[in-house]
Structures are given as C-alpha cells and as structure tokens.
Amino acid sequence: MTTLLELQGVSRRFGGFLAVREVDLAVEAGEIHCLIGPNGAGKSTLFKLVVGRYEPSAGRIHFRGHDVTRDAPHSRVQRGMSIKMQAPSVFRALPVRQNLHIAMQHHVPPAELAREEERLLELLGLASEGARPAGELSHGQQQWLEIGMAVALKPTLLLLDEPTAGLSPEETFRTGELVQRLAAGGMTVLAVEHDMSFVKQIATRVTVLHLGQVFARGSVEEIVSDPRVAEIYLGVPHAA
C-alpha cells in the first residue's frame, strides 16, 4: 500500500490558541478514511491545512511524494486533490451543467465534455436539472452537485468536509452509496464527518481528533468499541 497523503507533526496556532497540535496522519491509497471528533476538535482546521487554506505553524505535509506544505490551494488541486467544502459552495447563479463544465473543462478532452457532463448528471441524480441555476436546487442536491464538481476533477484524493450536513437520513444513505461507488472506481477518500451511522457505512479506517490532537485511530469496529472515544463524545469525565 502506498501513502498518498502524509502529515508530520502539523500544528496550527491562532494567537494564543493551538487549534491543531502535532498531528501525524497518513492516508493510504484506496482507503476511505474518516476523521471524527467532537465539536472544536480541530477537524475543520486540519482540513483547511490539508487543502492549503491555512499554512501550518509547524510540521510538514506531503502529497504523492511532494512536499506541498507551502503550496497554494490551486496547485495542490492540480496535483490531484479535490475538496467538497462544508457549506455547499456551488456557483449559484450559473446553470448546474455549467458548474460541472467549469470543474471538468481542463480534465476532459473537449470532444467528450458533453458526454461526461451527461454521465455525471445521471450519477448525481440531477439529469433533469442541468439547465437550472444551481442556487435553485435543494440543499441536498447542492451537496451532491458539489461532490460532482469535486469528482469531475478526476482527483486521486477526494476530501469531503461533512458531506452529509443538513441531509435527511435517506439522502445521507444515498450519499454514502455514492462515495462507496467512487472509492470502488479507485478514488481515495478523506472525510470529516459527524454522523456515526454514515461513518459506519463507508469508513475503512477512522482517526479520532480531540482537542487538536490525534486521540485514537483504527478500524470502525475498534473505534466504536473504544470506551475512551465514547467518553469524549458523551462528555463523561475521564477516570483519572
């Protein structure tokens, strides 16, 4: 197994507050890696460090063998990362199809663009919505469209920041199926997620963050049965 993304001792300080401290994390090619943790654990900050929105105060980030610690977001994306942000962020005024078009225009030969757009629309269940402005879609549809845009880049590593936020259980389940289908197609996934049923559905490996540090890691079964993880989620004080 090859390591696709590797964080070594990554920290991020905001003024006097250490949001992420000395995190080591490795994402192996082919896995669906879920990052969980209670509110304020530093998951979103860590994600922004991975994608290049923030620069780490200390530590290094390697992606596909390159040191990308100081690279701008767009050059990380060009190396094969792709992110779906927490709040759906699609080009609201533009038609759904153009959203996909903008995402894939540099990754798909011009002759195949139309067919590829069609295929993605179908996959996302948006086949009949192609001409509508993306801002008019339901919340769930926007989430999927954004996943579609992230996927359209044909990334080696797909980053999902709370892909099920605000979705119904039914929509959540379908999102899980979509992610699994993508992983089966050879995509590696790193997802931040709150919803444990979703994590159980998709994850091959789980890392738990707590107070900015790695608290536990392992398979889904190991994490679910770990009493210490339950404690931090339920807020039961740690028996000293």
């Binding site: 977001p73 767009h74 609201r92 903008i102 995402a103």
Partner: peptide, 14 residues
C-alpha cells in the same frame, strides 16, 4: 465567470 461567482471555489477547482 467562476471567479466572479465565488473566487474561493474557483481556486479549489485548481
């Protein structure tokens, strides 16, 4: 047009 609509999103599309 993508930059006009949402520059951050455009950057994250590479």
């Amino acid at each position: 047009v993508a930059i006009r609509e949402d520059a951050e999103r455009a950057e994250l599309l590479g």
